[in-house]
Design a protein around this nucleic acid. Structure first.
Lengths: 143, 143
DNA sequence: TATTAACCTACTTGAAAGGTTGGTTTAAAT
DNA sequence: ATTTAAACCAACCTTTCAAGTAGGTTAATA
């Protein structure tokens, strides 16, 4: 499993906010209800998105969350990299991986690097705008 | 993490056996030593490969394991699908996934299907033969 | 008949995903 | 001013699963 619920939920939140852009600040409670995600769990996910400035949070009555830029300026890759600790398909390609002693003779390293590349390329070329209002089979070819 | 150690070890075993094809049956103990993998853990992995007829096991003195066909006839995808429970990048695309109630309106489903496709396409087009005797940077472009 | 090696079943352990509980602070409406 | 709605924060829990161990039985060769 490359993408956990955390990442999937984060993406759904971002799409939800993109689709309700015109409505000002949207409270977490509303997003949670609409997306059928527990408020408390969602809270921990949204926190990451706010900290990384993908979302703007406004406190107090009338507060909520809002995108900080246009949907076409968010890539799926950028969103998932925030919530997933890593998008690397294998442990040895992760950020904090300790240098592999087999690296010099490893027959599989370039396989994994190649896999890593096709995954990243794919995710970095889809934006939030591509996913908004998507309907059954509409974008099947594009994606 | 899409590919666990189980899958990575399985692949390394298959490559090891491909590289020593001419030497008849290779005992698990030898593979384990060469690949620096615990014998007992490796045993549980090899069992899967034998059961699926990717390897031939011979018991008793002089026994060991052997490929059942030429290296170019094994794809990496086929090997990994055996040991990884699933290569699907998200839970909802797994074999035994219970139908998602959001399926009809899900904005992200075709994204995940597309990701699934690029991963599978990539892994199904690399064979054991491609990975044998691979040296630093040699196949970087091919992969 | 001793030895080597595959084959089999059950258990353990540690980490991480996926949450929950119970608060405090901030800002707007009354 | 005070109530209310909301974001923000820290600590804890619980289940699952990857990863690995332990201790055998069966089969084939020398």
């Amino acid at each position: 499993m490359l993408i956990s619920t955390k990442g999937r939920y984060a993406l759904r939140v971002m799409i939800d906010l993109a689709e309700h852009q015109t409505e000002g600040f949207i409270p977490l409670k509303v997003i949670a209800r609409r997306q059928e995600i527990s408020e408390k769990y969602l809270e921990s996910i949204i926190k990451l998105l706010v900290k990384a400035r993908l979302l703007n949070g406004l406190r107090g009555k009338g507060g909520g969350y809002q995108l900080t830029k246009a949907p076409e300026r968010y890539t799926v890759g950028a969103i998932l990299r925030l919530t997933e600790d890593s998008l690397a398909p294998v442990a040895c390609l992760e950020e904090n991986a300790h240098a592999c002693p087999r690296e010099q003779t490893c027959r599989t390293l370039s396989l994994w690097k190649g896999l890593n590349r096709v995954i990243s390329d794919y995710l970095d070329h889809v934006t939030l705008a591509d996913l908004m209002r998507e309907e059954e089979a509409k974008n099947d070819d594009a994606l």
